[in-house]
Each structure stands twice: as structure tokens, then as C-alpha cells.
Simulated scan of single mutants.
Amino acid sequence: MLKDNLKNVEERVQEACDRAGRKREEVTLIAVSKTKPIEMLQEIYDENIRDFGENKVQELCDKIEKMPKDIKWHMIGHLQRNKVKYIVGQVALIHSVDSYRLAEEINIQAKKKNIIVPILVEVNIAHEESKFGISEEDAIQLVEEIAELENVRIKGLMTIAPYVENAEDNRLYFRKIKDLSVDIAAKNIDNVSMEILSMGMTGDYEVAIEEGATMVRVGTGIFGARNYNKQ
């Protein structure tokens, strides 16, 4: 079943790329594996998926230990400063940086390991009170502040769009994130690139791709509905 789910998602990603006149390799599909058992991750890994996303540090660390070493792990959930030390150097990308203090802690831990850590700045584009992320209005200032940190590199932006019945309702938000990334890129800030736009989930990733997403985070579409009872 997972293989069929993945095939369906891959086909829809390709179709969205075609509609937008984009190449398929411009979009990275991240399999969001939170709450899912290792067996399911392994099944998707065996279908040549190498990018996996997790929300919780403990679960992420457990899975890193048990899964093959060539996986690129993405931290996509809210990250507390006291947990940063566990994932710096372990993940390919931290998507959810929404404050200078968090970036500063990542920088401290990166210096200890003598590495450069790539991050995305999370923007709460729809101003939802229930979600983390910096406001669109404050994003450029935050990017400029984080850019001063020696061992952190901003690679782009991330957003979690509202939950909607109709994916078209989120097109405006994806477009706003794309526009914001263009504005930031135009400032030519040292240590900052806007090559990554992490946006779009199971319900709206096709629209996100049409609006410029370079990473889409698909969980339910691949693994099926989440089972939180096992937590």
C-alpha cells in the first residue's frame, strides 16, 4: 500500500511540475515520518526516498540510530533551544527557525562541532495564532540578524499554510512566501541564499509546487493517517 501511495504522490508531483514548466529535480519530496514505525520508513526508503522529516527531537534521534546512514533528515517541527545540541550535525536541514535566540543556540552548538548548519527561517504567513513562525513583516530583519552568525547559513524559507478543504485557498500564501524570498534575495545579504522554499503538505503540495516550492513535506499522502495513540 505504501508503495502505491508513494507512486501516486510522485505522479502528482510530476504533474504539478509539468503544469508549472518546472523540472522534476527542482522539487525534493520529504517523507514526513512522524509517529510512524521504522518498518514503514524502511519500506519507503527501499523505494529510493532519502529525505525524511520529523517533528520531535527524541523520535528523530531514535530513528537516526536505526535507519540507514545515507538518509537526509529534516527537522520540521518546533525546536526548543535546550534540544538543539541533540540534532546539530545529525540533520541535513533545520526548517523551523523562527527566532534569533534559537539561531544563536544553533550557532553555539555548531561552533562546538566546528560545522556549518543550514537552516530555513519559518514564516507564519497566514498569521495563525496556533502556529509558530515569524511574521512576514519581521522576516527580513530576522534574516539580517541571523546572517551575522558565523556557523549558521540561511538557505531559504519555510511555512506551514492553514489547513484548508480546498488547496486553492492556500495559493495566495505560497505566492506571498515566494515573493518574500525574492525580496530577501534581492538584498544580497552575506551568508543568505533563498534557494529553498519548504512549503506544501499532503493537502496542498501541488499548488505549492506551482507557486515555487522546492521542498514539499508529505506525510499522510505517503504513510496514511497518523496514529497518535502510540506516543
Rank of each mutant, 00 (worst) to 15 (best):
K178M: 13
K176D: 13
G156I: 06
P162T: 06
L197C: 09
K187R: 07
R171M: 05
E145D: 13
E137R: 05
D204K: 03
Y173E: 07
A139R: 01
I154W: 05
I209G: 09
A167W: 08
R171F: 08
E148N: 14
T214I: 04
N188C: 09
N188T: 09
D190E: 14
I134L: 01
I196A: 03
N170P: 02
M158T: 01
G156V: 04
L197R: 12
N188S: 11
G133E: 01
K155Q: 12
G156K: 05
A147I: 05
E168S: 11
D190G: 11
Y173Q: 07
E165T: 15
F174A: 05
V207N: 10
L149I: 04
V207S: 10
T159V: 10
A185Y: 11
S198T: 02
L149V: 03
N191E: 02
R175Y: 13
M215V: 14
F174V: 05
L142H: 03
E195T: 10
T202N: 00
A139P: 01
E210F: 09
L157G: 04
G212V: 06
T202L: 00
I184C: 00
T159C: 15
Y205L: 06
A208C: 08
T159S: 15
M215D: 11
G133N: 00
V182T: 15
A161H: 05
I196D: 03
I140T: 03
I146A: 02
I134W: 00
D169F: 10
I134Q: 00
I209E: 07
G133K: 06
M199P: 07
G200D: 06
A186G: 06
V207C: 10
A167Y: 06
R175S: 14
A139M: 00
N188F: 09
E148I: 13
E165V: 13
Q141M: 13
A147C: 02
V182D: 15
G203T: 03
A208M: 08
A167P: 14
S193D: 10
I177R: 12
V216Q: 10
A186E: 11
S193W: 08
V192A: 01
M194A: 08
G203C: 03
K176Q: 14
E168K: 13
A213K: 10
S198G: 06
G133F: 00
I160K: 09
E148W: 12
L142T: 03
S135K: 02
I189R: 01
A186F: 06
T159P: 13
A186W: 04
N170Y: 05
N188I: 08
I146K: 06
E206M: 12
L180W: 05
E211F: 09
N166W: 11
T214R: 07
V164C: 06
K187G: 02
L149N: 06
D169N: 13
A139E: 01
E210Y: 10
Y173F: 11
M199N: 05
N170I: 02
M194G: 09
Y205K: 12
V164G: 04
S135W: 00
S198I: 01
D179I: 14
S135Y: 00
I196N: 07
E150I: 12
S130E: 11
R153C: 12
S181E: 15
V192C: 02
N166S: 14
S193G: 08
V143N: 00
D179C: 11
E150V: 12
G200S: 04
D183G: 11
A185K: 14
D190T: 12
Q141W: 11
V182E: 15
L142S: 02
E145L: 10
E210H: 12
I196C: 04
L172Q: 15
M215N: 14
